[in-house]
Computed example of a mutant assay.
Amino acid sequence: MRLDLNTFKLVVESTPLISIDLIVTNSEGQVLLGERTNRPAQGYWFVPGGRILKNEIFEEAFKRLTIVELGVELELADASFLGVYEHHYADSFLGDDLSTHYVVLAYRLVLDVDNLDLPSEQHDSYRLWGIEELLDSKVVHQNTKDYFC
């Protein structure tokens, strides 16, 4: 269930959001990142992912997010759980005046990235990064780097 804008703003102001991040690697261990077009973390390279919706069964949220973020439907059983992370941002999708707090469930997927039909709704472009390269980069968001430290 998607909330109307005013209700969702109140939720963002009042509580953490729960999300799933998809740490996608290819068979060589390179990591798929997208350059974010929206807030928070706009302009940074970040792993695909998104929020779990109210009343959405976890497995269904995972499937939906793989379709929306990767262009392919995958099952939770296709992934391995990496852990729980927290992401704090000074801004939100509404602008600079509202911070965002996420509790993130991170999952790793090994995929043939070259055969994905990656959507452009939330990421301007995509590319594969070596782990050392992304850890050293100033344009990869720290919350993404934390998955590899």
Rank of each mutant, 00 (worst) to 15 (best):
1 M>Y: 11
2 R>G: 13
2 R>I: 12
3 L>D: 05
3 L>E: 09
4 D>M: 09
5 L>D: 14
5 L>S: 14
8 F>N: 06
9 K>D: 05
9 K>H: 09
10 L>M: 15
11 V>Y: 07
12 V>C: 06
13 E>Q: 10
15 T>D: 08
15 T>G: 08
16 P>L: 03
17 L>T: 14
19 S>D: 14
20 I>L: 01
21 D>W: 06
21 D>N: 08
22 L>D: 02
22 L>E: 02
22 L>Y: 01
24 V>F: 00
28 E>S: 15
28 E>D: 13
30 Q>H: 08
30 Q>F: 08
34 G>I: 04
34 G>Q: 06
35 E>R: 15
36 R>E: 00
38 N>V: 09
41 A>Q: 01
41 A>W: 00
44 Y>K: 09
44 Y>M: 11
46 F>D: 05
47 V>F: 01
48 P>C: 01
48 P>I: 01
49 G>K: 00
49 G>H: 01
55 N>W: 00
55 N>T: 14
58 F>W: 11
58 F>S: 11
60 E>D: 15
60 E>I: 07
62 F>A: 03
62 F>C: 10
63 K>T: 14
64 R>W: 05
64 R>P: 04
65 L>K: 07
67 I>A: 08
68 V>C: 00
68 V>F: 03
68 V>W: 00
68 V>R: 02
69 E>F: 01
70 L>N: 02
71 G>R: 03
72 V>Q: 11
73 E>L: 07
73 E>K: 15
73 E>H: 01
73 E>T: 10
74 L>P: 03
74 L>K: 12
74 L>C: 13
75 E>H: 15
76 L>V: 13
77 A>D: 10
77 A>E: 12
77 A>M: 10
77 A>I: 13
78 D>R: 02
79 A>G: 15
79 A>W: 05
81 F>Q: 09
81 F>G: 07
83 G>I: 04
85 Y>G: 05
86 E>A: 11
89 Y>K: 08
90 A>I: 10
91 D>W: 00
91 D>N: 12
92 S>R: 02
94 L>C: 13
94 L>F: 15
94 L>Y: 15
97 D>V: 13
98 L>Y: 03
99 S>L: 14
100 T>L: 03
108 R>L: 06
110 V>T: 15
111 L>W: 05
115 N>C: 11
115 N>A: 15
118 L>Y: 01
118 L>H: 03
122 Q>D: 12
122 Q>Y: 12
123 H>T: 07
123 H>L: 00
124 D>H: 14
125 S>P: 03
127 R>T: 08
127 R>K: 15
132 E>L: 01
133 E>Q: 14
134 L>V: 09
134 L>H: 04
135 L>P: 02
137 S>T: 09
137 S>M: 03
137 S>R: 03
138 K>Q: 09
138 K>H: 12
140 V>G: 03
141 H>T: 13
142 Q>N: 14
142 Q>T: 14
143 N>Y: 11
143 N>G: 05
145 K>F: 06
146 D>S: 14
146 D>E: 10
146 D>C: 09
147 Y>P: 05
148 F>Q: 13
